[in-house]
């Protein structure tokens, strides 16, 4: 068994170094789909996080703890619910999103929204509240004051976005149930790893797993390097 793993690693590096078109296109597709999901999630999580972070309102703690509780939502559970909703006979079937890359992106965006909102809210809350007050004293409107706070918390927001992307690119449940692992269309790194290992192509499975690990690690290292320079 150890031999098989070593052999798998050797073949994995061969595939990666020789630029195998199948491996490359699967990796590129993963990045594009999860990138889109991250953009979508950021689009609605930034304003949401800003409002929760800056303003005080009734039920704020309930809203915050709801998002925190949803941090660990199992991707498979979300996948089943979305499958039933997007199925041609489901309530959202008319969108024809099932088995499309866009469908996966939408599902992953929903999956990572709690992470994005929670992290962004924390980032914004960690900014000195004086800044908000000071901006308003200097004659800024509420919106302008909020943007001043957002500028101060860029680092935290960037971290939130990276963490969201990492979760999206590494999840399996949504990609499998919504995407269906269709070759050349919705086959991404995680679904390909599951399938190739399942059908005995261990080397290919390990190669794809290494790429996924490298991708996630590279993004985290990038964040650390940028963060450590200050």
């Amino acid at each position: 068994m150890v031999e098989a793993i070593i052999e798998g690693f050797e073949k994995a590096f061969q595939l990666i170094l020789s630029g195998d078109p199948e491996v490359l296109s699967i990796s590129a597709r993963s990045i594009l789909i999860s990138g889109t999901a991250t953009l979508l999630a950021a689009a609605w999580s930034l304003p949401l996080g800003l409002v929760i972070g800056v303003r005080s309102f009734r039920g704020k703690r309930i809203v915050r703890s709801t998002f925190n509780a949803l941090l660990g939502i199992p991707a498979v559970a979300l996948g089943v619910i979305l499958y039933l909703a997007l199925s041609r006979s489901g309530p959202l079937g008319f969108f024809h999103m099932l088995y499309t890359p866009l469908g996966i992106a939408l599902g992953q965006a929903i999956l990572i929204t709690p992470i994005a909102v929670s992290f962004i809210t924390s980032a914004i809350e960690s900014v000195d509240p004086e800044i908000h007050r000071l901006a308003k004293t200097l004659g800024a409107s509420e919106t302008e004051a909020s943007f001043a706070v957002l500028r101060e918390s860029t680092g935290g927001v960037a971290l939130a976005v990276t963490a969201s992307f990492n979760r999206a690119v590494a999840e399996l449940g949504v990609a499998l149930m919504i995407g269906g692992n269709i070759r050349g269309s919705t086959r991404v790194l995680t679904t390909a790893i599951a399938m190739e290992t399942g059908r005995g192509e261990l080397a290919l499975g390990i190669a794809l797993a290494i790429i996924l690990l490298l991708l996630v690690a590279a993004i985290s290292v990038l964040m650390n390097v940028l963060g450590g320079r200050r």
Binding site: G155, G227, G228, R230
Partner: peptide, 8 residues
């Protein structure tokens, strides 16, 4: 949560 400059 912090560590990045705004520009970065």
């Amino acid at each position: 949560m912090q560590g990045l400059t705004s520009v970065e």
